[in-house]
């Protein structure tokens, strides 16, 4: 069995957004119990990560770390039409993931207790983000 659908998320700017619940709901509707869930973000300035879901300071620290690693407004950047966070957002995306594959067990994402699925907005402004979900199994 195969199920495919698009999910749309509104972000309020740079940071991580827990989308585990929306993914779980879409999987439940698909009726597929065992297999693989493939999640793909259709943008080059937002990405996906699996991350610890209990303490939000983990994700704040991750965002701070990324800001130190990939500087906004670096004078070396040539691609800055949309502001100082433009090129940095593309690099941050490449350093993280555009897709995640998660096993499906008994109709649920077989995540660890402390694992959550997060959409990481890398632009500082609010955006609408498309995520394509493909569920394969039986």
């Amino acid at each position: 069995m195969l199920h495919q659908q698009k999910l749309r998320f509104s972000t309020t700017g740079r940071g991580t957004y827990n989308i585990t619940k929306q993914i779980a709901e879409a999987i439940e509707k698909s009726g597929i119990k065992f297999g693989v869930c493939h999640i793909f973000v259709q943008h080059t300035s937002a990405s996906l990560i699996l991350c610890e879901n209990a303490d939000k300071t983990v994700r704040e620290d991750l965002d701070d770390y990324m800001a130190r690693l990939v500087k906004d407004g670096d004078s070396k950047y040539k691609h800055n039409d949309e502001g100082p966070d433009d090129m940095a957002a593309h690099i941050r995306t490449v350093l993280t993931q555009s897709s995640l594959s998660i096993p499906l067990h008994k109709g649920k994402c077989d995540l660890g207790v402390w694992q959550g699925i997060f959409l990481w907005e890398h632009r500082t402004a609010a955006h609408k983000r498309n995520v394509a979900l493909t569920v394969m199994g039986e």
């Binding site: 080059t44 300035s45 070396k76 040539k78 691609h79 593309h90 690099i91 490449v94």
Partner: peptide, 22 residues
């Protein structure tokens, strides 16, 4: 392999430069 922006030629070069620097 990477999935990256196709709009501006500079983007892929800057990405590659950054990763090379890293």
């Amino acid at each position: 392999l990477l999935i990256n922006d196709t709009a501006d030629e500079n983007t892929k070069q800057q990405t590659v430069d950054f990763l090379a620097q890293l």
